[in-house]
């Protein structure tokens, strides 16, 4: 079991969180939606696994490359 860190590809604010700790996800499933410059940018699971932590809250600002969730792949 490998711990996978999911990062934001862009500076943004967290608009909507769609997954929680314990959720089983498939590769490509949307974990949360970020908003940057009036665009919605989904953050997807890089691989199938189980969500171990969501590291941000809705409304929070995130930086590029910032870890926003972890998965157990």
């Amino acid at each position: 079991m490998a711990e996978v860190s999911v990062t934001s590809e862009i500076a943004a604010s967290v608009w909507k969180i769609q997954a929680g700790p314990g959720d089983r996800v498939e590769e490509g499933d949307v974990l949360m939606i970020l908003e940057s410059m009036k665009m919605e940018i989904p953050v997807t699971a890089p691989s199938a696994g189980r969500v171990t932590a969501i590291l941000v809250q809705e409304g929070q600002a995130v930086e590029e490359e910032q870890a926003v969730a972890t998965l157990e792949a």
């Binding site: 590809e9 862009i10 500076a11 943004a12 940057s36 410059m37 665009m39 940018i41």
Partner: peptide, 14 residues
């Protein structure tokens, strides 16, 4: 616009 054509026009703040 501050966006990256090579990354599907992803916004590019900075």
């Amino acid at each position: 616009c501050a966006e990256d054509p090579a990354r599907n026009f992803l916004p590019s703040p900075g």
